[in-house]
Structures are given as C-alpha cells and as structure tokens.
Amino acid sequence: MRKLSFAYETSLSFSAPVTDHRFQLRCTPPTLPQQRICDLSFEMDPPCALHTGIDSFGNPVTVGRIADPHDRFSYRVEGIAFVDQGLQRPAPYKPLYRYPSAFTQPGPALLAFAEEVRAGLAGRPWTTAPLEQAAYVMGAVHDRLAYRPGSTTVRTTAEEALAGGAGVCQDFAQVAVAVCRRLGLLAKYVAGLYDAEGATHAWFEVYQGGAWHPLDPTNNCRVGDSYVKIAHGRDYGDCMLSIGVFTGAADQSQTVHAVVRNA
C-alpha cells in the first residue's frame, strides 16, 4: 500500500475567443478495490455547470458546455490515492476484450509480429498462464518499439505505430493489447497517471484467474503501487481524457501537467 498525492491539469488557450464549447472529460480517478481516492477536488475555468456520470466501461465522465466567448479553458484535478495492486477483486469475464477494436485492428505488421511472438512463446512451453504470456508480449513490444515522442498522434492505430517502429505509451499499450488479443487473451487499455512527472500515462491489463492484472509495456514492468488509474476500455478511443468542439476561428495550444508523489 502506498499513499500518493496526484494532480492533473490541462489548459487550452485560444488565439481568439471561441463560443459554444462542448466537452467531455474523463479526468477523475475512480475509487476501485486497488485504489481508494480521497480529498478529490476538481476546478474548472471558466466555471460552468458540469454533469458527471459513469460510462459503459465504468469510467467517471464529466460533460458540459460553455456558451459564452472565452479564450482559455482549463481544469485541474487533485487528490490523494491509497494504492495497493494486491487488493484487486474478482471481476467478471468479458469476452469483449478478446476481440479487436478500432485502434487495435490487426494489419500485416501486427499479424506478422503476433506470429513472431507466438513462435517465441512456443519455445517457452512453460509460459502458459495468461499473465506470463502477457508479460512476454510486453517484453517483445518494449524491444520492438522505440520510445519517441512526436512520432505518433493520439489517432495512430496499433498497426500504424508498429509499422513505424516507434511511439509513446499509448502506442506501446495498444500494440500490447492487440497482440494479446490475437493470442486469445483478454486485454484492456488503461489511461492514468504515474510517478514520473509530466504527462499522463497508458498501460494495459490482462485477465487471469478472475481478475485484471496491470502491465506497463513502456517501462517493461509490472504496474506497482505508484500508478493511478483513470479510465479503461477497449483502446484509447474509450479512454479519451478530454474531447471537445467549439465554434470560432481560433488556433489552440494545449499544455498538460500531471504529477504523482508519495504523500
């Protein structure tokens, strides 16, 4: 068990005022068996009426609309998390997570890579448990992809990232998910925060023994107690931390800052 303090802040600034700004945020970590969230605060500027619900994957979602002209839009989430990955509770079997999704649809690169991984696993007949197989996939993905910020966008699919040979945490996670599913494992994409200061993070989970086990392919390690989960789903598309549309001919620039520390 660790006690973490986390803060996550996004701010958008527009070169000219925009109106009719509609948005949807997944930015507040939920309380889960393995993470207890306390003292959660959420601030938004400009202030507006917000509605919070839970989406079909179980993620908290906040929606709203700012009708009046504004040239900046920012929100900040902070709180305390007690995290212990050992407290995972049994979760129902969901075949959904064995099927390809929009961002994890295999193409030639993924099919070939999955076959390589399958051959590698065939040489390790003792690696039979889903979690061990997923850990092997994680290692293979970590070796195959170079970590290179800017080489992909949030819209890059697992297939495209793999074909390009580089990406960021989102790509590492999606390629790992795609390969796991190809091998018949149930795998989920996860978005969240961890104790490296800066941006948000992404990893994946694999289903074994009635519970989900998190793995971090970007760092090639098991997810420990310094990770705060925000959202999960089939792929990035289900876990977008923020999406919005507005009216106005303006350029926008965005800064994101995330921090997780021992509290």
Binding site: R22, Q24, H51, G53, D55, V61, V63, R65, G237, M240, I243, G244, V245
Partner: peptide, 22 residues
Amino acid sequence: DPFCFNPDSVIGVPNLISAYRA
C-alpha cells in the same frame, strides 16, 4: 455523437449519448 462514436463526425450532436444515458 462525436464524443461517443466517430470523433470526426460533424453531423452529430456532442454529448447526446450522455443525455440519453442519464
């Protein structure tokens, strides 16, 4: 609803699914 389905849709109504879910 571009916030729930195809994010490139310009003919949808953002957050319609959220209102429907509620």
